[in-house]
Design a binder for these strands. Structure first.
Length: 584
RNA sequence: GUGCCCGUAGCUCAAUCGGAUAGAGCACCAGCCUUCUAAGCUGGGGGUUACAGGUUCGAUUCCUGUCGGGCACGCCA
């Protein structure tokens, strides 16, 4: 058979495009075939007649008849019906439906690879959490979503690079450094009260122990020197005073520790980064690049973009700070790029980061952000537009929050009190596979209610095991059969005529279209739902028919069908970062 | 207050960039293991798609308004 894959849908579309062009001189790109919901409406339906009726000034059903008459002769279509207001219902020949099994078995893991991306290059940036503490369950959703989208886009014909932006510059890192230092001092008997806006988690104390192991008492300074002329705020004091105190502590640490401060800063950073990398790696999420924010300062990239904006006349001074005229590009208000104290804002380095991404020459840039950052989008696009970049090439899908439920109750989380559930805890509680799938089972821009009990349950309620079980069942049958599965590739498929069998073939045929839809919408949940449907159809088939039957031709035909199903289940699960076990 | 997102079965969610009679799972009821894994299957009840208009052959989908929920409105990152 011809090994080059042309899908049934593509071929049928071509036939109809030819037919339409022969009766009307119109743009046919928006006219297409779809899967009808009801099987008595055919295998495919075309709505072209309804849309062309107005242009041609004819009744829709009349147009439909003309279209059918104009169809080129072919070996695919059994018959066409005109139905309802003017739909053309297409019934496909059995042989044309069956051929997909051969195609899947020939292509293997490459079945479903498409040309949607035309090999354009693309950079997807995701997670990018501050390296100031462990990843929590919200980051887990970004990780799972971003990685799945990257896999799907790769399968859809894009050249994909994955990147993590490390916010290793700025005040939050200083706060973490000081927090660690204070815990370290406490190990030597310091009684300084831990500030309420410091990082409270146990991991900070753990880092202090490591610091002590490396530096011994070299970083120690007595309380009276640390607090000289400083007044720790009381609990009732307002936020502003608490923040000022923290800034003073940071300044004091830099003064007392001198060169050691930077070393401590980098040490704390590397510990957190290593933890983060390990956590994500165990979760099946890896990156091609870990891009450092610090590097944008040391290379002068931040100053460079600010100078460029200045040269183009988009900056002005006010209240001692430097502002960017983002309102000229549709933002609600102008934004500060350089503070009164001379320090650049996070916004300034972010402009430099995005300029850098554009300059690396990618055709498409994707930023996966938490939905709470949506107000930040206009100013970033404004700055990039001002610098002359085409922001239509920057896509920013938003990922909504995650709420955990245990025993029907919402698990309370608070970042301030360090009472958040970490990604690692979640993975240990429910396992990687359920976590990966549950995260992408909802549209990304919808709030996710994550039911821990359901994710943990080893029952039919759990969609993870439901899909995996279908895969395992198939391999169990093939195991029992015991012969070489390679011999199933080109067997006679004509005995496959049952309703269940045609439904499975239809789903196999739909796999490339599912990949394209998921890629187009950056929507891995589309694939997750497809896999649930495919598993359901397999289970149903499994219960209704015996595969290892005496009729050898029938047996081999059925086995080749379920082998093709297993191939797609395995591939789809892999794209979502979920394993496909052979036995359960 | 302003901007963005959302509102679908009792619950959690789908619905192929406007398509035909809006679908699954859970929960509830009734069945199926002497047969390749019951982590499975079969059947049943359950809806004014928040509400009111508009656009057209056709609206859960697009537009306007109202009600209800979430998020964002820093010289934080």
């Amino acid at each position: 058979m011809n090994n080059a894959h042309v899908s049934l849908l593509t071929e049928l579309n071509q036939l109809f495009h030819e037919a339409i062009r022969s009766i009307a001189d119109v743009d046919t790109t928006h006219l297409s075939l779809e899967r009808p919901k009801q099987s008595n409406h055919g295998d495919y339906a075309h709505n072209g007649a309804l849309q062309l009726a107005k242009v041609l000034k004819l009744a829709p059903r009349e147009v439909a008849q003309k279209l059918i008459d104009a169809l080129p002769s072919n070996a695919l279509i059994e018959r066409c019906d005109i139905a309802g207001p003017g739909f053309i219902n297409i019934f496909v020949k059995q042989s044309a439906k069956q051929r997909v099994v051969h195609q899947v078995l020939h292509k293997g893991k490459e079945w479903g690879n498409t040309e949607f991306g035309h090999q354009r290059s693309l950079l997807i940036e995701f997670v990018s959490s501050n390296p100031t503490g462990p990843l929590h369950v919200g980051h887990g959703r970004g990780a799972s979503y971003g990685d799945s989208v990257a896999n799907i886009l790769n399968k859809a014909g894009f050249k994909v690079s994955k990147e993590y932006y490390v916010n290793d510059a700025g005040r939050q890192m200083d706060i973490l450094t000081v927090s660690t230092w204070l815990r370290y001092l406490a190990l030597f008997g310091s009684t300084i009260a831990f500030p309420s806006n410091g990082y409270q988690g146990d991991y900070v104390t753990d880092m202090a122990e490591l610091v002590k192991a490396q530096w011994a008492k070299q970083l120690y300074h007595a309380d009276e020197f640390v607090l000289l002329n400083l007044n720790p705020p009381t609990q009732t004091e307002e936020d502003e005073a608490i923040e000022r105190y923290m800034d003073a502590l940071i300044a004091r640490a830099k003064f007392l520790l001198k060169d050691h401060y930077h070393q401590l800063h980098q040490h704390v950073l590397s510990l957190q980064l290593a933890d983060c990398k390990e956590d994500l790696k165990e979760f099946g999420v890896t990156f091609d690049e870990w891009f450092s924010e610090q590097s944008l300062y040391t290379s002068g990239a931040v100053k460079k973009v600010v100078d460029q904006l200045e040269a183009k006349g988009y900056l002005y001074q006010q209240d001692g700070a430097v502002w960017f005229k983002s309102t000229q590009f549709g933002d609600e208000k102008d934004r500060v790029v350089q503070r009164e104290n001379g320090i650049y804002t996070y916004f300034a380095s972010d402009i430099a980061y995005h300029a850098n991404k554009f300059e690396r020459g990618f055709d498409l840039l994707i930023d996966v952000w938490g939905a709470d950052h949506h107000g930040y989008i206009p100013r970033v696009k404004a700055a990039l537009t001002a610098l002359g970049f085409n922001t239509e090439r920057l896509i920013i899908p938003l990922v909504q929050f995650v709420s955990l439920y245990r025993g029907g109750e919402k698990v309370q989380m608070s970042t301030r009190k360090a009472q958040f559930v970490t990604l690692r805890e979640l993975r240990e509680e429910v396992g990687n596979d359920p976590a990966r799938l549950f995260y992408v089972l909802r549209k990304s821009d919808q709030h996710l209610d994550f039911d821990l009990d359901l994710a943990k349950s080893h029952s039919n309620d759990n969609p993870v095991y439901y899909i995996q079980y279908a895969h395992a069942r198939i391999h169990s049958v093939l195991q029992k059969w015991g012969q070489d599965i390679a011999s199933l590739v080109d067997c006679d498929l004509s005995p496959l005529t049952l309703e269940h069998e045609f439904k499975l073939m239809q789903l196999l045929e739909d796999y490339p279209d599912t990949i394209n839809a998921a890629a187009r919408d950056y929507a891995p949940h589309t694939l997750a739902f497809y896999l649930k449907d495919l598993a359901a159809e397999l289970h149903s088939y499994y219960n209704s028919q015996q595969f290892l039957v005496d009729d050898v031709t029938l047996c081999r035909a059925r086995l080749s069908l379920i082998l093709a199903v297993a191939t797609v289940l395995n591939d789809g699960l892999q794209l979502l970062g979920v394993s496909a076990p052979l036995t359960m």
